[in-house]
């Protein structure tokens, strides 16, 4: 009797193109649209509590339904099965990042330091399920799930830059998000293999990756300065030659 329409929503579906569905207008005086109905969110959060023990598997979903007083078969409303559970984990941890904003804003003014802090917070949220994460990454890498997984990565990178206070409004916007996505996914992968206490090695790995990106950026910055300078110098040379006749 519970498996009825209030559990279904248009959301649990593989999403469309990365460029357009991820970048809709963010309203400040309207509530953010939620991709999950309250019932779905309750079941999925209960299911997540079973992930450390059972992993990202159907059993966790079934237990989540049971915890919330639904029939075991209710898990069938999640058309993508385990992938829906994984997406909910990614979605809820991403939206929770905003809770750290006050603390991080108070501690540092540096944009890149803030980005690092958000990355650390997000990665720490993986700690309880870290032994199960490789399974999740494997499911995310299945061909039908790849677009939605990449979109979620793009949304995470955007969330981190937005919370950090990024004001880039030209092509920078893309390079920043792309490089952060690369750094984040590499670090996440590293973290799954990290056995050091409190993931000490992971934080060092993250530092090194972010430094590489900063270095690359300054190289690009100086090359564009060089191009502009050389361009101006050539024009001036040409003008002086023309003036000499």
């Amino acid at each position: 009797m519970f498996t009825s329409t209030h559990l279904r929503s248009p959301v649990c579906k593989a999403s469309s193109t990365i460029l357009n569905s991820a970048r809709l207008y963010h309203a400040v005086s309207h509530l953010p649209p939620s991709p999950y109905t309250p019932a779905q969110a309750r079941i999925l959060s209960s299911a997540l509590t079973h992930v450390p023990e059972h992993g990202f598997v159907k059993d966790a979903l079934v237990l989540g339904c049971r915890d919330q007083g639904y029939l075991d078969s209710t898990h069938a409303v999640f058309h993508n099965g385990v992938f829906d559970l994984i997406q909910y984990h990614l979605y809820s941890e991403r939206t929770k990042l905003a809770q750290h904003k006050d603390k991080i804003d108070a501690e540092t003014n540096d944009l890149h330091e803030r980005v690092k802090r958000y990355c650390v917070e997000r990665l720490k949220a993986n700690a309880p399920v870290i032994k199960r994460l490789p399974e999740a990454l494997a499911v995310m890498g299945l061909p039908p799930n790849v677009p939605a997984s990449l979109e979620e990565l793009a949304k995470l990178a955007d969330e981190i830059w937005y919370l950090a206070g990024d004001k880039s409004s030209t092509f920078d916007w893309y390079t920043r998000r792309a490089s952060l996505s690369a750094v984040y996914s590499a670090t996440e992968l590293y973290m799954t293999q990290d056995n050091s206490t409190d993931f000490k090695n992971t934080w060092e790995f993250l530092d090194r990756r972010l430094e590489n990106v900063a270095h690359l950026k300054s190289t690009l910055g100086s090359s564009s300065t060089w191009i502009a300078f050389t361009g101006m110098a050539s024009i001036n040379l040409l003008r002086s030659q023309l003036a000499r006749g």
Binding site: N20, L24, Y25, A27, V28, S29, H30, P33
Partner: peptide, 22 residues
Amino acid sequence: PIPAAGDRKLPPLSPRTRDFLA
């Protein structure tokens, strides 16, 4: 324009509207 904290929040904009504004 960013409304002050505690301002009323309106219901979410439709995806079509958000697409138009974006």
